[in-house]
Write a protein that binds this DNA or RNA. Structure first.
Lengths: 250, 250
DNA sequence: CAGTGGTCTAGACCACCGG
DNA sequence: CGGTGGTCTAGACCACTGT
């Protein structure tokens, strides 16, 4: 919680500086749409070069905390933009951020053959590659929110058991601990579909009620896909949030 | 279309270099998951310093074209990740990217009092501030795709006419040309709703059909909101696409 | 070990903005 | 005009990867 930079710390200086500046914003020392000290003013304050200061500010600009105006200065972004830049989250994290307790009812854990759609999405070329299917009803505060069906591409010879999934609510933490697969990016689509009889029963709604279907392909550190997930959300209980950015540069 | 950097060009060197590297990727000179030349190898090739090369690569990494692995090299991302990083687009751009011709039927252009929801979303404090409402049916290849209702916060005393909206299909280009308001970021939510009789008639569907409702607040260069838009999409014709990223750094 | 990307410095000049 | 962020250089050392 110090506000000086330790040059011997393993944490890079620009991360340390970004944390210091972020705290000033979070604690309200600097107000919305007002300028922070200029880059050259910050140099002697923290004993770092201007390039390092720019790296720290770059981080906060990308996270939506600050914005720059050429020739004028660097300013504090309004609160609205300070939260949740288009983030990749698990169902569990998503529920927690909405203030609800995540839960699950496991329907099935099994090895399956990939369909053509999955082969394409998961970039599978081998003919023997199997997938691990996990079918679950996801709940928020105990009531059914959606049906989640995951297809995992595990490292060859590896597998997951129903017990592991039961104990460890979040698949992402399981994947990370057991296989060192960490999600970094994902493609996601959303569309409206109507509930089949089975889905209606699982979600405790009327047949043909509208559902929000999201399909996601998740990529790990080396940009290889390792997961294809379908989630069917109850249309009356779920709202999707996104943060969009316009790329300026060409 | 040159592949050398012009130091006298007004375009920064790192943008020129990024364009050159991007072309090599697009044209298939460098293949997926193979390393590009190292940063120190690129220095003499393009006569720029390593810092400039890193800036160029940073651009392409952020746009999803390349990824880095510490101690190993910089690699070409798979095609999947090379398109459309979570982008903020207008309805017109969105339709064009889906290969359809965008069109519109203007229902109403008028000055209105902001509701409380709009005052909050558009950060309005003044009591006299009016909004410009534009209500339109949007079409793709001639068939109705959705109903778009925009509420614009124009600079004081300014206004838009029905004719201007008619001529200039995209509001964004109008806002940019006339008021120098350029969209840079937006918050967006998506949910499922059921069509009212009026909406069903406008979209040529049955009453109570499921619709995809998106609500968006758009921010300009200085992070001030200037637009609040609701779009009701036909659930059977529209699919939403998103690219998610996990923020690694703290 | 050599080669890679990651961090950092101390300087320079430019383009833009406001008074 | 002076102050701001934007670009660029030529170095340096570190941390990580593979052989």
């Amino acid at each position: 919680m110090s506000s000086i930079i330790n040059p011997f710390n393993v944490v890079p200086k620009y991360h340390q500086l970004a944390a210091i500046l972020k705290r000033k914003i979070d604690e309200g020392d600097w107000k919305t749409h007002t300028p922070i000290p200029s880059e050259r003013q910050l140099e002697p304050l923290y004993n770092v070069s201007r390039a390092t200061i720019r790296q720290a500010i770059d981080l906060l600009v990308r996270q939506g905390y600050l914005y720059r105006e050429h020739g004028r200065g660097t300013f504090v972004s309004p609160q609205k933009l300070q939260k949740g830049i288009q983030e990749l989250t698990s169902f569990s994290e998503d529920m927690l951020s909405r203030g609800m307790k995540p839960g699950q009812i496991i329907l099935e854990v099994a090895e399956v053959e990939p369909t053509d759609q999955m082969r394409q999405r998961l970039e599978i070329t081998s003919n023997t590659q199997k997938l691990t299917k996990i079918d679950r009803v996801r709940t928020g505060d105990g009531t059914p929110m959606g049906i989640q069906t995951s297809y995992l591409l595990l490292p060859q010879g590896q597998s997951l058991t129903r017990e592991e999934v039961e104990v460890n609510g979040s698949i992402y933490s399981l994947m990370s601990e057991k296989f060192h697969l960490i999600p970094t990016e994902a493609d996601e689509t959303l569309e409206v579909v109507l509930a089949t009889p089975r889905e209606a029963e699982l979600l405790d709604i009327a047949e043909s009620s509208p559902l929000l279907l999201t399909e996601r392909t998740t990529y790990s550190q080396n940009r290889r896909p390792f997961e294809f997930v379908k989630i069917l959300y109850r249309g009356d209980r779920y709202k999707y949030f996104a943060r969009l950015t316009r790329l300026i540069s060409q």
